[in-house]
Computed example of a mutant assay.
Amino acid sequence: MTIITSPQETFGSDLYIDLRPMLGRELYVKCEGLNFGGSIKMKAAAAMVAAAECAGSMTADSVLVESSSGNLGVALSVIAASKGFPFTCVTDRRCNDLTAATMRALGATVLVVDEPHPEGGFLKTRLDLVRRLCAEDERYVWLNQYANVENWRAHYETTAPEILKTFPNVDVVFIGVGTSGTATGCARYFRDSGSTARTVAVDAEGSVSFDRPAGPRLIPGLGAGVRPPMLDVALFDDVVHVPESDAVRMCRVLSARGMLFGGSTGTVVSGALAWLARHDAKRSLQAVCVSPDMGDRYLDTVYNDEWVHAHLGPGALRPASDFDGS
């Protein structure tokens, strides 16, 4: 029996889903959304807050502020509510309504920016607002998930060792890239531990993280309009870019089997299958992909037929029965 006194005391997961019966490949999904924050971001949030408290950055008068497309904002809302300090999340109009409502229910203030920066997109606009808030009021404390070493270190110390403990001989691990904390921490651990596992980064089309042209992105989570400062591309063996229509379709393939995952998970699984189709013709590789979140906050977007048809076209609604896993 596990007994806790605060929600941030539990954020790991030893639950993996075997997709072989569905897809015919030895691909396992590591579920990281089964915690009070609903996503893998609870790990980074807990680590960054703990480090700030140890450093004395957080005082009784402090107001925590962070830029987030959603999941980290919820995680910090949970921790802030638990610890009793105010939190302001700066997000943008792509943030799901349910995600924003969740943050508000936890007591957070949610500021939504409407206009993307002409060069850095919504992320640049959000960061500019965070910096302005900090400049105008010294009570604000910005953890800066994009450059905070505790972001990637949290996964170096937890996520990657968890994977290798369960799958010591894993051949390839697929990890989505947003701030790049999860991917960077895991890739560094695999390298430092001497593991032979290949690490493949999965990014959204329209993201500039791997020097691709910027493009519109509607699903929050993965991808960036400004290259993440902590991203070291040399750590990865390969990268896959996934169209959002493919991510939506994969979410629906999984939900048709009773597994409601978030848009980021659909992106990672879709990217994993695309890579395996090119590099594993014999279907002999053992693969793991990291699922960042569950799907309840995507009911108005990814799982809404009208939204998908209007924004991504009818191709994204192709029936799951048409998917052959190849």
Rank of each mutant, 00 (worst) to 15 (best):
R198F: 00
K83E: 09
R252N: 14
P161V: 10
G315E: 15
M1A: 12
T196R: 15
V302K: 02
A201H: 03
G223P: 07
D14H: 15
S270G: 09
V288D: 06
S207L: 05
C186G: 10
G84W: 00
V29Q: 02
L231Y: 02
I219D: 12
G223Q: 08
V49W: 13
V172M: 08
G37F: 01
S6T: 15
A52C: 08
A183M: 04
I175T: 04
A277V: 04
L312F: 07
F323V: 07
S321D: 14
L235C: 01
S180D: 06
L276G: 12
W152P: 15
V248H: 04
L317W: 09
R252L: 08
P243F: 06
G107E: 10
G295Q: 12
R20F: 05
A55W: 13
T182F: 08
G70T: 04
F210L: 00
P118K: 06
T179N: 00
A44L: 07
D14Y: 11
A214C: 06
E26D: 15
L143W: 01
R278I: 01
G107M: 03
Y189R: 13
Y189H: 13
P314F: 03
M230L: 15
F167W: 11
G38H: 09
S284A: 15
I4Q: 15
A135L: 09
S69R: 10
C54P: 01
M1V: 14
R188S: 11
L34S: 13
V208R: 00
L129I: 01
L133F: 00
G37S: 03
F85K: 10
Y156T: 11
F85E: 06
A214E: 04
A201K: 07
A50R: 14
L235S: 09
Y303M: 10
I4S: 07
G120D: 03
A135R: 09
L19D: 06
I17P: 07
M250H: 07
T2S: 12
A287I: 00
M250W: 12
P228Y: 04
V130S: 03
P168S: 07
W275I: 01
M250D: 03
D300R: 13
Y298W: 13
L260H: 08
T166Q: 11
S207G: 05
D300Q: 14
T102Y: 04
L285A: 08
P292F: 05
G313M: 06
L23S: 06
D203N: 03
S195F: 11
S264T: 03
A160T: 08
R126E: 01
P116F: 06
R227C: 10
G84Q: 01
P161W: 09
V308T: 08
S270D: 04
R93T: 06
F190V: 11
A256F: 07
R297C: 05
T88S: 12
G84F: 02
P116C: 05
S39T: 06
E157L: 11
E26L: 09
G194W: 12
G223I: 07
L276A: 12
R25Q: 10
